[in-house]
């Protein structure tokens, strides 16, 4: 399989990338690790005139602390995320979920920001970013803006990033004392997409659940927050987890495909939410 012809721009800075995007607009497509874009090009399902490669923009890679936040460069590879000490210490949910992404070859090329900007609802990381209340820093010709995860994922493969913009970095609030987490991924073979995934982060206080955040993978055209579950868990005892998890499919619009019809996915969401929250709550 051979892609159609396209021009290629390798950006060495965010400014260069933004300039190239400003010049080519809709005709251009940003490439990060290429793990989603290259298959689309090879199958001729995508016909950009220009590919703007940001994979080697140094200022877009790496992880740093910024007060109560971690700042993860969009070009940080999955492999780097999994092995990054700061992420493991402060946002372990990201590392745990990233370990389940595809296979080692993909994890060495694919990037955290690329996965979020691609916004495949079956991808693992969008639901995680949503559950963690991450903020996306987006650069365009007019400068930088920050978009909360809640407003970032707009539709199937669509985000708040405009054609002349690029996702630069992701700000994730650190999970402090008392927080536990779990990513439950349900899939049939190791390298395949999630049929359903549940990202849960839970803060316990005095034996009850003080706060819970639950994101769902592949339960709609975007990642979704299981807000009914979160509400039911707020201040709840651990015995109430099962009951709360029964609300996991509320407000979702799960797809029907080869791996399962919607009703099965709704059932899985409830079972996996119970398991994820139970594990996150450390019980």
């Amino acid at each position: 399989m051979i892609p159609a012809q396209f021009d290629y721009v390798r950006a060495s800075s965010v400014d260069e990338a933004v300039a190239a995007l400003a010049e080519h607009g809709d005709e251009a497509k940003v490439m990060a690790g290429g793990q989603s874009l290259i298959p689309l090009l090879r199958l001729r399902l995508s016909y950009p005139e220009v590919v703007v490669d940001v994979g080697r923009v140094a200022e877009m890679a790496g992880v740093r602390e910024d007060g109560a936040h971690l700042v993860i460069g969009a070009m940080t590879t999955h492999h780097e995320v999994i092995h990054n000490e700061l992420i493991r210490r402060h946002c372990g949910l990201i590392a745990e979920a990233t370990e389940t992404v595809a296979d080692p070859a993909v994890r060495h090329r694919g990037t955290f920001g690329g996965a979020l900007a691609h916004a495949d609802p079956a991808g693992d990381l969008p639901a995680v970013a949503l559950a963690l209340d991450a903020e996306m820093v987006i650069a365009g010709s007019g400068g930088r803006r920050t978009v909360p995860a809640e407003e970032f994922f707009l539709d199937y493969l669509q985000t708040a990033v405009q054609p002349d913009e690029v996702l630069v970095e992701v700000r994730v609030p650190k999970l402090g004392e008392g927080w536990g987490y779990r990513y439950e991924k349900f899939h049939r073979v190791a390298q395949s997409w999630a049929i359903v995934g549940v990202a849960a982060a839970v803060r316990r206080s005095n034996g009850t659940i003080a706060e819970a955040r639950v994101g769902l993978t592949n339960m709609g055209s975007t990642p979704v927050r299981a807000s009914g579950v979160e509400e039911a868990l707020n201040g709840a005892s651990l015995e109430r987890i099962g009951e709360a998890a029964d609300r996991a499919a509320e407000g979702t619009s799960a797809p029907s495909d080869l791996n399962g019809k919607a009703d099965y996915r709704e059932h899985l969401a409830r079972v996996l939410t119970r398991r994820a929250v139970t594990a996150a709550a450390g019980s």
Partner: peptide, 9 residues
């Protein structure tokens, strides 16, 4: 979409 199992599976 056609799932061929590999060693981990």
């Amino acid at each position: 979409d056609y799932l061929v199992p590999a060693a981990p599976d």
